[in-house]
């Protein structure tokens, strides 16, 4: 299928799209590579961790929704800058963002994930799984850290992260899309661009399938997050009402 499409789509078009997606990614990353390098070994102290662990479940949930909500704004800006996204009808733009933004965030997370000490950048410093204990979502947190370690093993470049996140965002199989063919065409071109990028750099034939093989774990994490949110809303409806409006818009069904 890829070969057939390649004959229809010119190489120049694919290269232009790759440049656009990579530029959009770099312009809308929450942290530059330099900033991340500077922060790399800035860890929470034992006291910080104890304080965070002693927070109530509700307060920790709220803190996480604020961080996620903030990060989503950058994903929306990324989507807006990807060629073709704004040509979709607004209904489809919303569907793609709602369905795909957490997956995009999970991939973006690896830029701020340190596999050497199993920590992730959270609110300005690096934190391990124990930091999130009070959320009461050990399975979800463990799955997110497992994905972080798995993805880090691939040592994705910024170009690969850019193209992979764009491809995930433009998934044509999201329910209720009105122009899924149009989305499919865009995604096909982005995957072609990713394939070219891989060939250019490493020439490793199964690298693309290794990257794509992480999608099921990402889907599991997204479903688990929705389950946890649903449960939290049942137990603490008044706290959930005060979650950031953008978080509620994206994740309330």
């Amino acid at each position: 299928e890829g070969g057939h499409l390649a004959s229809d789509v010119s190489r120049i078009e694919i290269e232009r799209l790759a440049q656009n997606v990579v530029k959009s990614h770099l312009e809308t990353s929450q942290y530059t590579s330099e900033e991340l390098k500077r922060l790399a070994w800035i860890l929470y102290s034992q006291e910080d961790i104890r304080n965070m662990q002693s927070k109530s479940c509700e307060a920790m949930w709220h803190e996480c929704t604020v961080q996620i909500s903030n990060a989503i704004q950058y994903v929306v800006e990324f989507a807006k800058r990807v060629d073709g996204f704004m040509d979709l009808c607004q209904n489809d733009q919303i569907i793609l963002l709602k369905a795909g933004c957490l997956e995009v965030l999970l991939i973006r997370m690896i830029r701020a994930f340190n596999p050497l000490n199993n920590t992730v950048l959270f609110a300005g410093k690096y934190a391990g799984v124990q930091m999130f204990k009070s959320l009461g979502c050990d399975d979800l947190i463990n799955a997110i850290f497992e994905l972080g370690r798995n993805l880090c093993r691939l040592q994705l470049s910024d170009e690969e992260i850019a193209l992979f996140t764009a491809a995930v965002l433009l998934s044509p199989d999201r329910p209720w899309l009105s122009e899924s063919k149009k989305v499919q065409k865009l995604q096909d071109k982005i995957y072609l661009a990713l394939q070219h990028e891989i060939q250019k750099k490493s020439g490793n034939e199964d690298r693309l399938s290794k990257i794509i093989s992480k999608l099921p774990l990402m889907k599991t994490i997204c479903n688990l997050h929705l389950d946890k949110l649903e449960f939290f809303r049942l137990v603490h409806p008044e706290v959930a009402t005060n979650f950031p409006p953008l978080y509620k818009e994206v994740f309330n069904s």
Binding site: E27, Q73, K80, I94, L246
Partner: peptide, 20 residues
């Protein structure tokens, strides 16, 4: 539209809240 008013606004807004 009302249900997703922030997303609509972010998508339409050229001066997005992202500080670039």
């Amino acid at each position: 539209k009302e249900k997703h008013k922030i997303l609509h606004r972010l998508l339409q807004d050229s001066s997005s809240p992202v500080d670039l």
